[in-house]
Design a protein around this nucleic acid. Structure first.
Lengths: 152, 152
DNA sequence: AGTGAAACACACACCGT
DNA sequence: ACGGTGTGTGTTTCACT
């Protein structure tokens, strides 16, 4: 983590808006284009920037249902851990999945179209696995905040 | 939602990698540059694309602690709802915040550097509010999956 | 709605400091 | 390491089909 102030500024700008041109960033951080471009290239090369993505509007695309589900596996299900994780990764509706400290649970962030979409997903992709013991759904109501930006 | 197959393909590509050039996308969806560019411009204009952002590497920047915290407000705290939400939005460590169905709780996704960073954040920014009754922390261990892409 | 070309801006490399 | 300048490549517009 040998990042100076300028590098942090650049990262802060790019994680808010990756469509900024090198010239615009250079201007904002008080550099000229060439050195600014070199810094950005190095930040990418060193792995600080994992990638650039477009963020889509969930609501407008019909995804009005966001649920955090806790999934508990049965005892003998622990032999199927890596199989379960591979499955999870293949489900597009699961946008995030973590194992939690203290329990043997998985927490899944699941996005779907309506309650019907969610129920169907859980039935077809989670409850149908014999080693899934329990699924507890935490349904979100309103989104107060959501950002991909880190507090740098 | 009057999106045809090509538009969906374009969105799917862009939400995976926003650094693709118009020509590359045009190639992949079987269009030439101009009409492809027009479609992308329209998708942005119509609000399907909320923005383009750079995703940074949490670990490399020292953010090794990811916690989902449930925050319960006291009864009279409900008069301070909007004040609380404004505060939440101003905290960079809180990357997401939702209200949950069934309870009066807020769920916060908090990213920080180490357990110390987390504890300090909770003490200084949540527990110091008189109307915050309870904070229950769910600490994540390993990340099985994380994506910003929607299942289109 | 798709094609082709032209104007423009930007990304990237090579210079000097 | 920063700054200036140039060249190719991508973006954006326009005229045509």
């Amino acid at each position: 983590m040998s990042l100076n102030q300028v590098d942090r500024q650049i990262l802060a700008l790019l994680q808010q808006d990756a469509s900024l041109s090198t010239a615009e960033i250079a201007d904002k951080v008080g550099l000229s284009q060439s050195p600014c471009w070199r810094r950005i290239a190095k930040l990418e090369q060193d792995g600080y920037i994992k990638g650039k993505v477009a963020l889509l509007d969930e609501k407008q695309l019909g995804f009005d249902m966001l649920v955090y589900a806790h999934v508990k596996l049965s005892n003998h299900g622990r032999n199927n851990l890596s199989e379960f994780e591979k499955l999870i990764m293949s489900y597009d509706e699961v946008t995030e999945c973590y194992t939690m400290a203290g329990t043997m649970d998985f927490m899944l962030r699941i996005i779907s179209r309506g309650i019907e979409g969610y129920e169907q997903f859980v039935r077809d992709n989670l409850l149908n696995l014999e080693y899934v013991q329990e699924v507890h759904s935490n349904v979100t109501m309103t989104c107060v905040k959501r950002t991909t930006a880190l507090p740098i």
